[in-house]
Design a protein around this nucleic acid. Structure first.
Length: 432
RNA sequence: GGGAGGGUGUCCGAGUGGUUAAAGGAGACGGGCUGUAAACCCGUUGGCUCUGCCUACAGAGGUUCGAAUCCUCUCCCUCCCA
């Protein structure tokens, strides 16, 4: 539970306002009337919410941006509400590409619990502006179809709904769109209305791809309550090379340590491109403008040293997994990449480093190809064979050249370090 | 309800009876160069007990020496009409 990180976080006091800081950090891509919003933020504590739908058992990096926006608002004295989409998760936000497969109610309910716990870790539930967690199932579960159509549906114009990006894209594609997903924006709009009524919530944040859903609530509140509320859309984070940010080796980077180990998480950030690292520091860390400026200079003067990447990796890992996990990941990274001679590492350090990696059991004589599969470094025996043939497999930093190779003597008689490519590592541990 | 078109590997997309495990592209992975970057160059990319075998072109069945390609039924999608 990374409470150290929470306690340490603060906004940069050199900014005249939270609005200025959010802007500087590049977190505002679109918003409702910027002047009115800046004024509202400056006028006193307001309540802001962001929703997280249970589409998987864990949040991923895309969600982290949102969590940090809420946290920054909280640090500025505003009250954050984290919403988990117990009901919206049952419906599915339309993606531009294709219809979602519905998950069972039990699955969604289980994911809701996990997300609720994850979201809770990034906000402070005590202090002067305590956070709050809500589940939209609480106010939609009892809503009848008739009430829904009469009380909410009547405020929606189909013409407007059709113009929403994801909907329009789907209508123009072969996939089409179901009535279920088409209705999603109404549910999200109703959430905002509900939170406005219950908690006086007047600001919703979300990714810019959510803009249509954000304005859905704004319009509804305006119609029903006659009040102008606000929204901030954060930019879609992309890599300078056009590759998808938040994907490592083709799969999402998760906040759950069971899905993405702290070590893998640390490595992901450490490998950030020079061209992206400053932007990432602004969005994903609480470092001050001064500190980030300093790191920017370091990148220009000594890019090879990768100071900014190291700092970024530690900060974000500490934020998500705690200081100890960040230290362990950093030390493991240094130990395993630092020296070519693994046998020279003190056994305790080697053991600690290997504990961060995916592992399998083996002993001298165990097939290397089999171990690659067992550790998850390759997906099949055939892939192992190809990887070895291509010279992409190493045991204890020695390249393996024979597809039939077996494990030799182990480090300290207990360990072996398996490597795929330049930087994907796994541990082999002898069964005690 | 009626009619037309369509469902191919991670994704996009060619292929309308026989060198098709399936063109091409993207993505991903590996090698080289580097800084555990980026860019660039080269290679790989269904599985296995791997000079062979198995499984695959929505699902099931059929025709044929032989099918992703032809036929039947089922499921799903798109468009037009109602």
């Amino acid at each position: 539970m990374p409470t150290q990180a929470l306690a340490r976080q603060r906004n940069d006091s050199t900014f005249p306002s939270i609005w200025d800081e959010l802007t500087w950090r590049g977190l505002v891509h679109v918003s409702t009337d910027p002047e009115a919003l800046a004024r509202a933020l400056a006028a006193g504590p307001l309540t802001a919410y962001c929703g997280f739908d249970p589409t998987a058992p864990s949040l991923h990096l895309g969600h982290l941006t949102q969590l940090l926006v809420l946290r920054r608002l909280q640090l500025a004295g505003h009250r954050p509400i984290g919403l988990v989409g117990g009901s919206t998760g049952l419906i599915g936000d339309p993606r531009p590409s294709a219809e979602r497969t519905l998950n069972s109610r039990e699955t969604v309910a289980a994911w809701v619990e996990r997300l609720r716990e994850q979201v809770g870790r990034f906000l402070d539930f005590e202090g002067p502006s305590p956070a709050r967690m809500v589940n939209n199932l609480d106010w939609t579960a009892g809503l009848s179809a008739i009430d829904f159509l009469r009380d909410i549906g009547k405020h929606y114009r189909v013409g407007t709904m059709l113009k929403k990006d994801a909907v329009a894209a789907r209508l123009n594609s072969e996939a089409g769109i179901s009535y279920t997903e088409f209705s999603y924006q109404i549910l999200q709009g109703y959430d905002f209305l509900q939170l406005y009524r219950e908690h006086g919530c007047t600001l919703q944040t979300g990714g810019s791809d959510q803009w249509g859903n954000l304005t859905s609530g704004i319009d509804l509140i305006h119609r029903v309550e006659g009040v102008a509320v606000h929204a901030i859309g954060t930019p879609l984070i992309t890599n300078s090379d056009g590759r998808k940010f938040s994907k490592s080796e083709g799969t999402a980077v998760w906040l759950d340590p069971e899905s993405t180990t702290p070590y893998a998480f640390f490595q992901f950030w450490l490998n950030t491109a020079d061209a992206d690292v400053i932007e990432r520091l602004k969005v994903f860390t609480f470092l001050s403008r001064d500190e980030i400026d300093g790191l920017e200079q370091a990148v220009q003067e000594r890019p090879g040293a990768r100071e900014a990447q190291r700092r970024l990796a530690w900060e974000v890992t500490a934020l998500v997994h705690g200081d100890e996990a960040a230290d362990a990941a950093r030390d493991a990274s240094a130990a395993l990449f630092g020296s070519g001679d693994l046998a020279a590492l003190p056994p305790a350090m080697l053991e600690a480093a290997l504990a961060e990696l995916p592992s399998a059991t083996g002993e001298p004589g165990t097939s290397v190809a089999g171990l690659l599969v067992a550790t998850g470094l390759t997906a099949s025996a055939g892939e192992s064979r190809r990887a070895i043939a291509q010279g992409g497999v190493y045991v204890d930093n020695e390249r393996v050249t024979d597809a039939e190779a077996v494990l030799g003597p182990m480090l300290h008689d207990r360990f072996a370090v398996l490597r795929r490519g330049k930087r994907t590592l796994a541990a082999v541990v002898r069964d005690a």
